[in-house]
Design a protein around this nucleic acid. Structure first.
Length: 450
RNA sequence: GCGCCCAUCGUCUAGCGGUCCAGGACAUCGCCCUUUCACGGCGGAAACACGGGUUCGAUUCCCGUUGGGCGCGCCA
């Protein structure tokens, strides 16, 4: 029994977009590949910006992608644990009160930058005497609390980036507790990771610097012996080179779904882009799982092209078995004996799944035929063999027509396609005709809607 | 500004000193198959950012330049 546990920890302040989805998928697939657990944990410590509607939307989007969490948690409901962690840090002398206002801090940063220095907190509050603190508090100032970093070089072997190191002396002591006593992301995140026995933290490379701070926190909280492994994947960029952030709504999972993009195509593109694996259509998340490897992810930022997504989606559709889409077809009342041969006949011509509904109408409902050459079509109708029909019916019928009329090629086939389907292009008629059936075919060849 | 990371066809990438006049995939172009579209098959065009080193020999190692990314919040 493996004890591998991963988590995807979005803040419910926006929708899932392709970049987020990638992190979620990477975690999920990694967990499933190693028979581990996948936790969905909402980092909702920012009460101001966190919205319940986003919680619902994120779960729905993940579900659509096929990412099924083994557990769903909310940080906001685990306050006691976070407070306990804060107290432990305080007792260990790693948490100290600071009284600067945001404006003062901003000024300090500006000053340092102007001198060509990194904008790192100067630890002025650490030098405050007890009476100075008392005076500040008496004047109505409330403290926020910082974690006192150990100024050393923190190293870890990253699952995707290899050996990494960060010099904590170049970092500001992070604020863990706000002036109003609520916690910022850093502390709850680590406290929860410890509590939930998270063994692997897979996230975007925008978190590499955080890792040093978090490793120190893990250690300060006594979890130094059970440090999780870290893996930081590269970030995706739009075709025009902008970062794929919460702001780029065009690449949100919801909008992709509305455009009719296949979830498996989104997943394949999200997971495979930016790695040395070639982007290719997959039949299931299981196939994708077997196919990806954190070590194959590149360290460079990768461009994500939505245009490629559309063709990948079509190619994905072309390879889906009837079983894979049975329920989705049923949702559009595409059921019964004809459903499977129908799917097999049309799937290769679909751009989006919804295109199938149009073809189902061609075989199952009344359509207006397009009459190109009425006389020839009447002749064709008269030569229609009696049922029962099998797959060979098209070949036998058109062969007979060819002999009777001398027509061949486009002159023979084009009028038939137009009358039978009402369209210029589409799947092989050999597969479609048996599904259309004799009565319907005869009527259409006569120019009647049927 | 400071720190860290990165730099190969249009795009995603393989390459870990000679096997590379650089390989694959997607896109693109041409041909074939086909009544049409799609699929499929075959073939073409297309890249080592720049400058110094090291070396008998650099895409591959080192330094610099340029370019890009990330971080530097009482956001997550």
């Amino acid at each position: 029994m493996s004890s591998l546990i991963v988590r995807f920890a979005p803040s419910p302040t926006g929708h899932v977009h392709i970049g987020n989805a990638r992190t979620a998928l990477l975690n999920y697939l990694f967990a499933k590949k190693h028979r581990g657990l996948f936790i969905l944990r909402f980092d909702d410590t920012d009460a101001e910006r966190s919205k319940e509607a986003f919680v619902q939307a994120i779960e729905a989007d993940l579900n659509w992608l096929g990412v099924k969490p083994d557990a769903v948690l909310r940080q906001s409901q685990r306050l006691a644990l976070h407070s306990a962690a804060a107290h432990r840090l305080q007792e260990a002398g790693r948490l100290y009160p600071c009284y600067e206002t945001p404006e003062e801090l901003e000024r300090k940063r500006k000053r340092l930058q102007a001198r060509g220095l990194p904008p790192v907190y100067d630890r002025a509050a650490l030098a405050l005497t007890a009476s100075e603190r008392a005076r500040l508090e008496a004047s109505g100032r409330k403290p926020h609390w910082r974690f006192k970093l150990d100024h050393r070089i923190v190293r870890w072997n990253d699952l995707v980036r290899g050996e990494c190191h960060i010099n904590c002396a170049s970092l500001s002591d992070p604020v863990l507790v706000r002036e109003d006593g609520t916690y910022l992301y850093t502390l709850p995140s680590v406290a929860d990771d410890i509590d939930q026995k998270v063994s692997h933290i897979i996230r975007g490379e925008d978190h590499v610097t955080n890792t040093a701070v978090q490793i120190e926190l893990f250690e300060a909280l006594g979890a130094g012996q059970r440090l999780p492994a870290f893996g930081h994947h590269n970030l995706l960029f739009s075709a025009t080179g902008e970062g794929l952030s919460k702001r780029s709504g065009a690449l949100s999972i919801g909008s992709l779904r509305e455009e009719g993009i296949e979830p498996l195509a989104v997943a394949a593109a999200a997971v495979l882009t930016g790695s040395s694996a070639t982007v290719h259509p997959v039949v299931s998340l299981c196939e994708l799982k077997a196919n990806f490897d954190l070590g194959e992810i590149s360290r460079t930022q990768a461009r994500f092209d939505p245009a490629e997504l559309a063709t990948l989606s079509a190619r994905t559709l072309h390879g889906l078995s009837f079983e894979a889409v049975r329920e989705r077809l049923a949702a559009h009342d595409i059921t019964g004996r004809k459903a499977e041969p129908f799917w097999l006949a049309v799937r290769g011509n679909l751009s989006t799944f919804l295109d199938a509904v149009g073809w189902w109408r061609v075989v199952e409902a009344a359509i207006e035929p397009r009459i190109e050459e009425a006389e020839f079509l009447a002749q064709a109708r008269d030569k229609l063999p009696e049922e029962p029909w099998d797959e060979g019916i098209w070949a036998r019928w058109t062969k007979a027509l060819k002999e009777a009329t001398g027509r061949k090629g486009r002159a023979l086939f084009h009028p038939l396609r137009l009358a039978l389907t009402g369209r210029e292009d589409g799947p092989e008629l050999a597969a479609l005709l048996p599904l259309i059936g004799r009565a319907r075919a005869a009527a259409r060849l006569s120019g009647h809607a049927a």
